[in-house]
Amino acid sequence: MEKVKVGIIGPGNIGTDLMFKILKSKNLEMKTMTGIVESEGLKRAKEMGFNVSTEGAKAVAEDPEIKIVFEATSAPAHLANAPILKEAGKICFDMTPAAVGPYVVPCVNLDELGDDVDDYNMVTCGGQATVPIVSAINAVADVEYAEIVASISSKSAGPGTRANIDEFTQTTAHALKVVGGADTSKAIIILNPAEPPVMMANTIYCRVKNKDEEAIKKSVDEMVKKIQAYVPGYSLRVPPIFDDDRVTVIAQVIGAGDFLPEYSGNLDIINCAAVGAAEIVAERILKGVR
């Protein structure tokens, strides 16, 4: 069956895990891995039989066969690459906090965004794990205030996250409003160094206007199923519990272990979300509607 060819910019942990996920994809075909210097990641991609290049974005922009590009670099790199990719007519999934294009949380707003978007920003790992739950609660109970606490294992927090931890809290809090529908929001991140490493946990608190317990439970349940369709390791550790006008939900993400260990659920969920969204976009390309 015909598939849409993809390129990945950035052969680090995220890029390599994306490559492994794309190997399992129905509509996506891995073609090129590109970086800016020789690296382990490029070597691995080459050994697996894919095109590799040290010419960065140029290598994928100049290949007319490649329709979809994953940008797994850094915010400054994507700001530089975005115009090149746009000019070349590529559809880009941006794993960085650059937010050139709109936030996408596949189960919440991918359909809504329509076919014109050519740069999808994947928010943050915590955003992918919590925005859907806030959205599900907001749909039936009107969320006045959403607050999330994402706890991740220290080992899974890379130098990028550590050097700019504010970016995580600010972007996640923003997405809780813009995509999740909360009127106001707050996000907290905790790094836990315990050994063996802890699984990614996400606590979602919502202050709601209309507390209909049954409707909230049903809405959250349905949303969890939608998330699980593209994030197999997502589950609720604590289903909605109610105290006055507050709803509390705790979700866990166990990584799929494609390339990264299971405790890297934070990295897994953002990659699952990007590949999940790309899968749907690719299907529309293959059907000729996009």
């Binding site: 606490v149 315990a194 946990a201 606590t203 604590v238 519990i241 509390t248 705790i250």
Partner: peptide, 14 residues
């Protein structure tokens, strides 16, 4: 026992 660290008050409910 679970080696929870400062700030993980949410894990009390968990």
């Amino acid at each position: 026992k679970r080696k929870m660290v400062g700030g993980q008050e949410d894990m009390i409910v968990d």
